[in-house]
């Protein structure tokens, strides 16, 4: 549902601003509602493994690695787990962006690299900024890549991926090479994200609740978050 956001933006380019300003809703924006509908379709089509209700992240990675399962909707950060638990199957697992309804416009929803912060009133601002500069330098980037492995391209100029990246990362690269084939996930464009999204999507994906009522419920859930943040217009 979150990974469908490229397709939401393709159809409703101002959704993020409208959503933050309390003008657009999941339940009433067809492009946004589709993410919930896909979850319902997957359940109704019977594509899920029998014990999906208790399958955890590592089970999902195991199943795509060993061929027990065909698809697992997951970000490429899962590659780290794949590398650790099933190194022999690292190149057996590929990656593609979640398809939308329009075959002409296919693109990837992207989660941004982690950010580092420094408290504004720290007595050691200089040292902290120097460290941040190091982390964001090609050298710091290379050290991190060696330690944890790459799960996608970096935002640091001069920090290129090596030739021997896992297959899933290689599959991901074409999206970044063309303009307009990536979009950030909603959480990088809007501060509004409800705390019960996980439970609501589990309900839809388990056939407990239908997509339309889930979207409406989620719209209600985010109200708390927006009010707690003191956003205008909520």
């Amino acid at each position: 549902m979150l990974a469908d956001f490229y397709n939401v933006l393709a159809e409703a380019p101002t959704f993020a601003e409208d959503y933050t300003a309390n003008r657009a809703k999941y339940a009433t924006t067809p492009a946004a509602l589709r993410g919930f509908e896909h979850l319902q379709e997957v359940f109704e089509a019977g594509y899920l493994n029998r014990d999906f209700g208790v399958a955890l992240f590592e089970d999902g990675m195991r199943m795509v690695a060993t061929g027990e399962g065909a698809h697992y909707p997951m970000l490429t950060f899962g590659i780290g787990t794949l590398k650790q638990n099933h190194p022999e199957h690292l190149d057996d697992v590929g990656f593609f962006a979640q398809p939308g309804t329009d075959p002409e416009r296919n693109g990837l929803t992207v989660w941004m690299p982690a950010a580092l912060y420094v408290p504004a009133d720290t007595p050691h601002a200089e040292e902290a900024v120097a460290f941040l500069n190091f982390v964001a330098s090609p050298e710091g980037c290379r050290i991190m890549m060696e330690a944890v492995g790459a799960s996608g391209p970096y935002l640091i100029r001069g920090c290129d991926l090596p030739e021997d990246v896992p297959q899933a990362v290689r599959d991901m690269m074409p999206y970044f090479e063309e303009d307009g084939r990536t979009a950030p996930a909603l959480e990088f464009l809007s501060p509004v994200k409800g705390p019960a999204l996980e439970q609501i999507t589990v309900e839809v994906g388990s056939g407990i609740r239908d997509a339309a009522s889930a979207a409406a419920l989620y719209d209600q859930d985010v109200e708390k978050q927006a009010r707690q943040l003191g956003l205008p217009n909520w």
Binding site: G53, P195, A196, Q199, V202, S206, I208, R209, K224
Partner: peptide
């Protein structure tokens, strides 16, 4: 799954978490 075994205390806990 979902909210099927939520009780008052777990609902409260999730609000703290958020």
């Amino acid at each position: 799954p979902g909210f099927a075994s939520d009780v008052l205390a777990s609902v409260i806990y999730k609000q703290y978490q958020a």
